[in-house]
Design a binder for these strands. Structure first.
Lengths: 221, 221
DNA sequence: TGATGGCCAATTGTATACAATACGACGGTG
DNA sequence: CACCGTCGTATTGTATACAATTGGCCATCA
């Protein structure tokens, strides 16, 4: 939206591609990144790839050790707890504030994001996850707080791995739909207090589901 | 502390050097980064420099536009507000939690960081700023929440520019010393509630000072 | 047999060289 | 005289080529 004509660098595109591969689990935990192989697979050289990897490390999705390269940061119940605790600290208040501050464009964008999420085929989990993230961000962006918005986005990306991995078999579509409906309704009605409470409960509920799933996985393993 | 023998890459060192230059104001707002010039000045090639710049953009200290390079993200009262609002949302609770969870090593590290800050020559503002950041992080790290700790560190780095630029002429040493003393005392006493309140007030106070200074600057300009 | 030290392949990290893009000056044209 | 297109230089972005570090394998030796 800032620029109509998009001029993006190779590094940018590689960044998003690799990020999606991590988030969807295509690149699994602790898997080392073979730079030459990945670069040639993507049809680029190592330099833009390495710039993308450096950014992804800063985002918290990769870890690097000098001369030993990058590995995918492993998932853990502890990290999931942290991510969702941070989201609880930030997102409800930010989203509620945005509900009050949103102009017409922001409100339409939020509605559009909601409908896009609504129409996503529940079979395509990766697509649902992306649109879910976009929806949550659309609720925060109209506050005009750029840093807060980008932080919420970052946390959403980190969270996505966990929701994709652990909520996949649960079939929680129905409840999620109801909750999202409540979120958009209260937000559009500019009922900041109700929205903040609903969003808090929504995030906390997801975290509770994740914890249960983690516990089940631990038992199964 | 994780590794005794430090094997770091050029990109890592350049990252910190450039970060310090931004934080201390040596690289001013909106100043474009001439990659070739900076690289040769640092005695490295463009590749490690560019990896460092990519990371710094992810950290929020730089902005990039394709084929037009990197520029220093300008400071603004709005961004300062955001940074400190986020710190208020996260740091007091995290620090209080760490006070309860800290083991002996963590407690000694916090004390050491406090004394280091205490002994920093108040004339060397950059040194004070760094040690102040290290102190605040030392209060959070013992909670064992890695992501939260790194986020607090990031926000601290972003905040540092503003404190360096705007609190420099104020001579607030005495009050800061008293507040830090209170912070470390309550933290060491594991009085989580008091510590949380003190840290909240400390951050809020700094923000108030910054706002006043910003307003004064705006009038003067 | 078990440990130790040195070669070798594989992989990462960096420098040099090249292509692509953007900004500014100049001259032409209405 | 204002405007527009074109060229030239400066700067960024990328590919190729090279150096440095790691980890494994095997021979050697106590």
């Amino acid at each position: 939206m800032p620029v109509s004509i998009i001029a993006r660098t190779l590094s940018d595109r590689v960044f998003e591609i690799v990020r999606e591969r991590i988030v969807t689990g295509e690149l699994r935990d602790n898997m080392p990144i073979r730079q030459d192989a990945l670069a040639s697979e993507l049809g680029v050289s190592k330099i833009p790839l390495r710039e993308a990897l450096a950014r992804l490390e800063q985002e918290g999705l990769l870890t690097s050790q000098a001369n030993r390269g990058y590995t995918v940061q492993p998932m853990s119940a502890a990290q999931a707890d942290e991510i969702f605790a941070l989201r609880l600290s930030i997102e409800p208040a930010a989203s509620a504030s945005a509900a009050l501050a949103a102009d017409e464009g922001g409100r339409q964008a939020a509605l559009a994001a909601f409908h896009a999420l609504d129409e996503a085929a529940s079979s395509n989990l990766a697509e649902v996850a992306v649109r879910n993230r976009v929806f949550h961000i659309a609720l925060v962006r109209p506050a005009g707080r750029r840093l807060t918005t980008s932080l919420v986005e970052r946390l959403g990306i980190l969270a996505e791995r966990y929701t994709v991995a652990h909520l996949a078999p649960a079939g929680r579509d129905a409840r999620a739909h109801v909750e999202h409906q409540g979120l958009i309704d209260s937000w559009m009605a500019r009922d900041a207090e109700a929205h903040q409470r609903l969003l808090h409960d929504h995030i906390a509920g997801t975290l509770a589901d994740l914890r249960a799933q983690f516990a089940a996985d631990a038992v199964a393993a």
